[in-house]
């Protein structure tokens, strides 16, 4: 539409108004996806309580509570995001960073009948740190519409973080919605972001173990866990996030030459769930997750990148559209707008 108005002799303002939005020539991280964003705020002091389930002296690997039989339905939630073009915006002779980006969030339901992609939603946005913002949605092409979001921070990577944040919020909304049903188990990819008690249960699944938390004696146990075993529960309490109950679970034996911590994931639930609640969730996860581990030959992020999650990521990425085409659309759009 914007283009038509211009041709009809409308004022020489495009969708960006007084902002001059240009492609950033330097796009080192342009690619299918930008690198991992540090999930853990690095130095948030958190207190650790390892005697939640049993005393520190009695720490040992715990086998999953045997719960064979028909599989209860379980939901997995994941999201993907990518930057589609990095831009700079000039306003009042000042330069600001921005990014066109997109995310997709979805869920997979596994039950005793089938595994299916259940829900998904996508979002596209232009994250700009400039004080002036475009006023409406930015229609780059049919079906390719970006919503402007304001980024408070002016750091170069702030727009990317903002897109990531949007995705996390969408994941959280979906998780809340799914976990609002009685008795459901919802496994959310990444740390848990909400604390309230739901009718169902939400478990955060952290596949990349960056911080081991545990003091050395218990750390030795972590290395010695057998596949399917978990550590006793421990509590994490800090000022920046709500209190959680967490445990480590080994999905598979490390291969020769692997770190002793490979094949280990961390799970967490809100402490509000209670120790008993956490224990039964730990049992459920212990019985289920090792079954879903990815095969090393087929997935670089094996075994932690569980089969339903990697399938969901592929599915969601496809829903974002072909990035080369979108990139070209954006380029020609910005060229038109620069006229």
């Amino acid at each position: 539409m914007a283009l038509n108005q211009r041709r009809n002799g409308s004022p020489p303002f495009g969708v960006f108004g007084k902002l001059k939005v240009r492609l950033d020539p330097w796009q080192p991280e342009f690619g299918p996806e930008f690198g991992g964003i540090e999930e853990q705020s690095p130095e948030s002091p958190e207190s650790l309580d390892i005697e939640l389930e049993r005393s520190a002296q009695l720490w040992s690997g715990i086998d999953p509570g045997g719960r064979a039989g028909p599989r209860e339905p379980v939901w997995f939630i994941d999201g993907v995001r990518r930057m589609e073009a990095r831009v700079t915006a000039k306003f009042n002779d000042q330069y600001f960073y921005g990014a066109f980006g997109a995310f997709a969030v979805g869920s997979v339901q596994l039950n005793s009948e089938q595994a299916l992609f259940e829900r998904f939603l996508t979002g596209r946005m232009l994250a700009l740190s400039s004080p002036e913002q475009p006023t409406g949605e930015i229609a780059v092409a049919r079906g390719l519409i970006y919503l402007p979001i304001r980024v408070a921070d002016t750091e170069p990577d702030a727009p990317i973080r903002a897109i990531h944040g949007e995705m996390r919020r969408a994941e959280e909304a979906l998780a809340r919605e799914l976990a609002a049903h009685e008795g459901r188990l919802v496994v959310v990819d990444g740390p848990l972001t909400f604390e309230e008690r739901m009718r169902g249960s939400a478990v955060g699944y952290i596949k990349r173990v960056i911080k081991t938390y545990l003091p050395p004696p218990q750390l030795a146990l972590l290395a010695a866990l057998k596949p399917g075993q978990r550590t006793p529960l421990f509590a994490l309490r800090g000022s920046r996030r709500f209190a959680r109950i967490s445990w480590f679970l080994r999905l598979s034996e490390p291969r020769k030459g692997d770190s002793e911590f490979s094949g280990i994931v961390r799970l967490e639930v809100a402490e509000a769930v209670g120790v008993e609640g956490a224990r039964s969730l730990a049992d459920a996860c212990g019985a289920l997750l090792p079954e879903l581990k990815a095969r090393r030959a087929l997935d670089q992020r094996a075994p932690q990148n569980l089969l339903p999650i990697s399938a969901l990521e592929r599915f969601l990425r496809r829903k974002l559209g072909d990035e080369r085409i979108i990139r070209r659309r954006l380029e020609s759009f910005l060229v038109r707008e620069a006229d």
């Binding site: 997979v108 039950n111 005793s112 089938q114 595994a115 339903p308």
Partner: peptide, 11 residues
Amino acid sequence: FHVADHSLPVE
């Protein structure tokens, strides 16, 4: 096989 044992969703 994973689809058959309901661990992998596919289109």
